[in-house]
Design a binder for these strands. Structure first.
Lengths: 218, 218
DNA sequence: ATGGAATTTCTTGTATACAAGATGTTTGAC
DNA sequence: GTCAAACATCTTGTATACAAGAAATTCCAT
């Protein structure tokens, strides 16, 4: 890009954080970034504030802004909150979802399964994402949808570890189908509870992985 | 203040929006604000970005930032989302709340009732706020708590209209007590459902008010 | 040699100058 | 008189200069 907009810079920085180029506690030097993106400090500072607002970094006055990767505790809380948000979306969607959206969910599930069969990790994640996004949308509540999307996006880098558990995918697919069935029959409670557990399990699995890594490191 | 920090400016602007000095669609002129706060445009721009990030204003490129008061539809969605957040907090709090916090909830209820009896509107709102904040905190989930606080704060100016309904307060208090009882006995479902309805009713009432005002205006 | 204080350097925060786009007005042609 | 185009003005966006506080280094005293 010739003269990147602050919002583009913020997105690029986000990508750098997600891709692991910046780790927890790293300071984002304004001058360095200004040179890197070929702009002055002003738009860089705007982009940094955007990062701070999104919770990806924290600002210490007169010190600078620092990358703030969530620790194990906060991550668990994020997964738990995600589970609650999704449950809420499912609950509301149960009485609002359109037939077309139900078909979309089933289509997404088909693609998920196909991707699993083909060993296509990217395909799986994309289809899985579509599945969840459709439910957010069908909550019929743009505020809730936006919050769910935000947290979902934030947790994206941490969901990948799920792959490590053999057999989890099959169960995951079964849960998806239970959710669709509940939504089709308008059963709000089952849809909500199933989806809540479905997401919460990801948090559990992640927690187990963290624990095992921690143990292995010692 | 001598040289207000951008964050202080943002808070002040927020107050001006909540107090009604700025209405929907008003443009926040950088130069005017700079003179008003006795600083240059730079810290003003930072404060404005903060407002945009919090959803209170929207930025149109090369046009400026404009106050964006939520319309009736978005307000209903915000109340609905708030109800879901509170239900989630209550659900989690049911198995995590401390005895001390339960006492705090009952104390808050006592103050609520006393304020109602004394016709002390401010006292009522403060005690009511404490009640809800304790539940957020006792969810044991800082992420969820932060989201709930954010939305609660955002809806603050719109909750006041509740006063208009006679008899609502007594029912509201009864709902509070049902919630406390459910939390004390660890009944997550009842706590969640009661609190959800408790908040959702506020949205309903608000909607009715909006509709009546709309009708009256024609 | 080590602890501490002063100074130097480096970084953030603020002000101002400049660039570029958007809006509003004036002027001219039909 | 009306429409359109050019121009003037105003506002946002960016760069840079300057101020102020924090960290690091150096220097001195013990």
């Amino acid at each position: 890009m010739d003269r990147p907009h602050p919002i583009e810079i913020a997105d690029a920085l986000e990508e750098l954080v997600f891709s692991g180029e910046y780790g927890d506690g790293d300071r984002l030097d304004e001058i360095t970034l200004a040179q890197r993106f070929g702009v002055s400090r002003t738009p860089i500072r705007e982009a940094l504030q955007r990062l701070v607002a999104s919770g990806l970094a924290e600002q210490r006055p007169r010190r600078g802004v620092f990358i703030r990767q969530p620790g194990p505790v906060e991550l668990m809380q994020m997964f738990e909150a995600m589970a609650e948000f999704e449950a809420s979306c499912a609950r509301l969607a149960a009485s609002r979802i359109s037939d077309a959206a139900l078909d979309d969910l089933e289509e997404a599930n088909r693609r998920c399964k196909a991707a699993v069969a083909a060993g296509d990790a990217d395909g799986y994640y994309h289809a899985n994402e579509v599945f969840h996004h459709v439910i957010y949308r069908q909550s019929g509540n743009a505020v809730l949808e936006a919050e769910a999307l935000r947290l979902h996006r934030r947790l994206k880098p941490f969901r990948r570890v799920q792959l490590r558990w053999r057999g989890r995918m099959a169960q995951s697919m079964a849960e998806h189908e239970t959710v669709v069935a509940a939504l089709r029959s308008g059963d709000a409670a089952i849809a909500a509870d199933t989806l809540r557990d479905h997401v919460a399990v990801q948090g559990e699995k992640f927690h187990q992985l963290m624990a095992s890594l921690r143990t292995a490191a010692q």
